[in-house]
Amino acid sequence: MNVLIVEDEKALTNELEIFLSNSNYICDVCFNGASASEKIATNLYDFILIDLGLPDYDGLDLLKEAKKYNPEAACIILTARAEVNDRIKGLDLGADDYLPKPFSLLELQSRMQAIMRRKFGLKHSVVMLGNFVIDLTNRTISYNNTPIGTITKKEFDLVAYMLLHKNRTLTRSQLSEHIWGSVVNDDYDSNYIDAHIKNIRKKLNVYSSPDWLETVRGLGYRININH
């Protein structure tokens, strides 16, 4: 997968590149709009990440160019200027997603994967975990063909997110940002993730012990899948 990162903040570009390269993406970077415009016109990408706040270029113009020369590429807007209108404009111009800064790298990756799933029409995405079957399309967890009805929406979200980033330890901050990211509230240090995980374990234990769901002491949680 080829990714073009257009971001004038070098330190951030650098981190994006490290992270995406580790996740097996091939990265190309631009620090300004002019060179990005050139690259968009000459190369083909699967993903184009565009920062709207470029010093020399209107990010939305870049988006139009991308749609013209790189119609296959999925465009994700990254911006610190989270103006409500920008978001609407960006999505109207054909951006596939919109990620306001600051964002978690894991969140970026999960958005990219979601776009790929949509694009390639992965109709039924099912994962086997021990004796449990996680159906990511219908959002159910079942055991021996019996769906476990007690799992709530939030609990499923957590399992799905960990599954997406399997074999990777996710911190409580990363998990709560994913499931409560849209809520703007007063708390910054809620450990309600522990309560959720406890509930998930309790509900699954009725059927079988979910050994694949690991608590990494002091760090967070992870789902292990051995290939």
């Binding site: 951030l12 981190e15 800064k101 964002f103």
Partner: peptide
């Protein structure tokens, strides 16, 4: 708005460091 970019950089750096394999617990 101005604070968002530096926060974003720090957040990404911390996340990347957390992933590094030789990082002690």
């Amino acid at each position: 708005h101005e604070l968002m970019t530096p926060i974003s950089i720090l957040q990404s750096k911390i996340e990347n460091m957390f992933e590094e394999e030789d990082m002690p617990d």
